[in-house]
Amino acid sequence: MPVRKLARLLAATLLVAASLSAQQPAQAATFEHPGVLVSRAQLDFVTANLGKEPWKSAWEALQKSPSASLSYTAMPRAVVECGEYSNPDHGCSDEREDANAAYTHALRWYLTKDSRYAEKAIEIMDAWSAVITKHTGSNAPLQTGFAGANFSRAAELIKHTYTDWAQAPRFADKLRTVYLPTVIAGAPNHQGNWELIMTDAAIGIAVHLDDRASFDQAVTTWRGRVPAYIYLESDGALPKAPPNSDHNTKAELIKYWHDQTTFVNGLTQETCRDFGHVGWGLAAMSHVAETARHQGLALFGAAKDRLRFAMEFHSRLQLGAPKPSWLCGGEPVIGLGANLEVGYNALHQRLGYDLPQTTTWVQQKRPAGLGRFLAWETLTHANNPR
């Protein structure tokens, strides 16, 4: 081949390679902001409806909360130590409450445009980013998920709707180095709500950091854990094992499902533990799907059958239906909580599923308030078509 022709061919090859190289990072790094659990369109819808129910009562509850007060004072520390059931509790409750307060003030800022609330959210986050170095203790992974979920929501909302946060890079660095490595690792051998809550935090932090690799990893964890958390009869005689877990024989799976041996549509891995933890698991998996939806990924479509069966199954029993003798020895521990707003809105409002039991339970529990990694979801997600 003549040298000149070879040179032209080589140049064209390099040009194509350079073009592909230039396109891929831009595509890989693109996220919609704000886009962690809530979007601008969702909050604009809420703003336009604050004088109507159910948003009116939810808004009033937020404004009355101590977590929404301008006199709120953060309680940061360098090392947060959390044992089983937060015993010991060396900063665990303080960190969770401060993360809740930061997100509460971020929401109050957006819905009022009163900069004092943005500045309070920033004050709380700056206090923590100045000192936090690690989480220790047996509950450290779950604690990191609890706090990381609401801290990432607060940071996302402030960074992308308020113009003056000097220490935003420092807070982002703490999310990247103190929180993300723990929550992105998952917890395949723990109770399912652990890994789902950690994944909730992981996907929120990934979006805030424009970290596509961590986003994709969180989605992969979610795709594996959801079918291992909620049973469908199409799964076969036994529930699916969590990916990478040690629960992979019949005896191990039954023990992991708290000695339950009869499996029906909507039963969860923690049903025979207690409904409170089930509520956390369903809430966390819905949060992940909602954040992914804001980024153009339709995870609710993948989970719609498992999630709707689980919400209806547990809501029915929570509302007083007779407890079957085959279920948890006839004595399931109810206490579902106000955990279903995000999943309910996605399946009922957007996808059009009739969920009579869930509807009754959700409406009874409104307005949903604050709790560990949950905050004001009647306000942000009730009847929200956005």
Rank of each mutant, 00 (worst) to 15 (best):
N87L: 09
T30Q: 15
R386I: 10
F263W: 13
L232R: 14
A289C: 10
S65G: 07
Y229G: 10
P322K: 01
E233T: 15
A303F: 13
A382F: 09
T163D: 15
L107M: 05
E195I: 12
H90A: 08
L15N: 07
A284I: 02
D89H: 09
R170I: 07
A78Y: 05
T104W: 05
T220W: 04
E95P: 02
L209N: 03
S138C: 04
A187R: 06
T359L: 10
R316Y: 03
S71L: 12
E377W: 01
A375M: 07
Q191N: 14
A41H: 00
G186N: 12
E270N: 05
G279S: 09
A302Y: 06
G224A: 08
M311S: 10
S129H: 13
A310E: 03
G35S: 15
K250P: 12
A346S: 15
V131P: 01
V219Q: 06
F263S: 07
T177H: 13
Y229H: 11
L43P: 00
S315M: 07
L379S: 11
V36C: 00
T73K: 02
P54M: 02
V342M: 07
T378W: 10
A251P: 06
G371R: 11
N244M: 10
K365L: 12
R40N: 09
E60F: 02
W361S: 08
